[in-house]
Amino acid sequence: MTDVDKSYRKIIYLTFPQEVSGRPMVCNLTRLFDLTFNILKAQIPPRREGNMTLELSGTEENYKKGVSYLKDHGIKVASAAQRISRDEESCTHCGTCTAICPNDSLYLDRTTMRVVFDKERCAACGLCTRVCPVRAMHVEVKNGNEW
């Protein structure tokens, strides 16, 4: 068996039209395309339009197939509606945020004892923005197609 690179990872923002909001679309991403999902935020009221911020990981090929599948079923797919930034001047490198960061995109460099922020790993969940004692972490909201 050959090793398959499943490290492709993306965060997307989905808008579900009313007629599909009752169907198990996200579950099918796993069953049909072997994608791992992590729901970061979701609002899917029955029989109404819903939306969801979803982190997907797997192979790049399957990711693309999965996204096409969603689009084929009338779901609008956009890149994530927010991302996190750090005010480098403000951060005191205390380390409090490392308690709640769900995927270790904020972690301590144990030699310098400074907090490293790995933007590539960040799932934009926003927990750090509430926990940071000096409010150095900010949510940037997407404006049109530009950040």
Binding site: T92, H93, C94, G95, T96, T98, A99, T112, M113, R114
Partner: peptide
Amino acid sequence: VQSVPLTSRSR
């Protein structure tokens, strides 16, 4: 158990 500092050692 994961350890989390509240004091900034670098500062």
